[in-house]
Amino acid sequence: MNFKDRYGPWALIAGASEGTGRAFAQHIAEQGLNCVLIARRTAPLNELATELRRDYGIECVTASVDLSAANALTQITAAVGDREVGLFINNAGADTTNTHFLDRPIEEWIEQANRNVSTVIRNCHHFGQQMRQRKRGGIILVGSGSCYSGASYMAVYSGTKAFDLCFGEGLWAELKPHGVDVLNLILGRTDTPALRATLAKNKLPIPDDLASPDEVAKVGLAQLPHGPIHNWGQTEDEAGYAPNSPAMRRARILAIDAATKDIFGG
């Protein structure tokens, strides 16, 4: 199948208003998929939707949703309606707190956990069931290299990204036999408005080695059939900043999956 047949007719992009989310939407629209664009800010979503309709002739739906809210999925499914979502991209969840865990109110960390964990698994459960039934589709969980280690300024963030990594690996093993692709796209430093704002706040220069959102989206979509992991800037057999390579993790996932099938009688 070509891209549109495999992942269409609609793509849902959470965190679509800027940066890599916006780039994903542009590349997906170029492939002919209609888009449901989700983020908190309405104005940039509507601007992007107008651009995609004009440049690619696709249909586009936008919805302002706080992905940390308990009813985020309800709002998303209301926006989707009866449209058939064949591709879900979770691009939301940048860490803009940049403080020690004990120095901020617990409510802020709960919001981050809701956005990066609870809403992610709710979306994957809802749209993953539909993809499994159709025996086609794709899910991209945009992650961060912080998933491989905790750090004092991102205890909650790295913890949620580690969860997403393991969750995505398990989902890949579960949905692979049903023709549904799952990819953890693990990024390093990427030139996004969120990163630029953090650097400006701390009066730091912009590094010259940042990844481009356009290239990130292009590579992520190309790697989707080859999950469960792609570490940005690294090869399949290279560990780099991770404890082990994607190839080694894939082999381990399949071995554990086979063992658990024996245990649970799957």
Rank of each mutant, 00 (worst) to 15 (best):
T99E: 09
I121E: 00
L52Y: 09
W10N: 07
P177D: 10
E236G: 02
R134T: 09
L87Y: 11
P246K: 13
E236M: 02
I13R: 02
T260P: 00
N71G: 08
A49R: 11
L37T: 12
F3N: 03
P44S: 13
R22H: 10
G57A: 05
V180F: 08
R22G: 00
N184T: 07
A259V: 13
F167H: 08
G188Y: 06
D103K: 14
D181P: 06
F127G: 06
P177Y: 14
G233Y: 04
S149N: 04
E236R: 15
A25D: 01
T97G: 04
M248K: 09
H178L: 13
G57T: 02
G220L: 10
Q26R: 15
D5R: 15
E169F: 01
M131E: 02
R249A: 10
I206M: 12
K203S: 06
Y56S: 11
R53K: 11
H125V: 02
F167T: 01
S149H: 01
S212R: 12
W109A: 06
W109C: 03
I206H: 06
D55K: 05
A251Q: 04
G168T: 14
S146P: 00
A162H: 09
Q130H: 04
A11K: 05
A247L: 09
W10G: 14
L171S: 11
L52N: 04
L37F: 09
R196W: 14
L52P: 00
K4Q: 08
G227Q: 14
A72P: 01
Q26K: 14
Q75K: 10
A239S: 15
A151L: 05
E108V: 13
N71H: 06
N244S: 15
K176F: 03
G266Y: 10
E84K: 15
L48M: 09
T235P: 04
C147M: 02
L165K: 14
G32I: 08
V36P: 13
H125A: 03
I229K: 00
C166W: 09
K161N: 02
D208V: 01
N46Q: 15
G8L: 01
A39N: 08
E169Q: 11
T97M: 10
P228A: 07
R6G: 10
G137C: 14
A251C: 02
Q75G: 10
N91C: 15
N116Q: 08
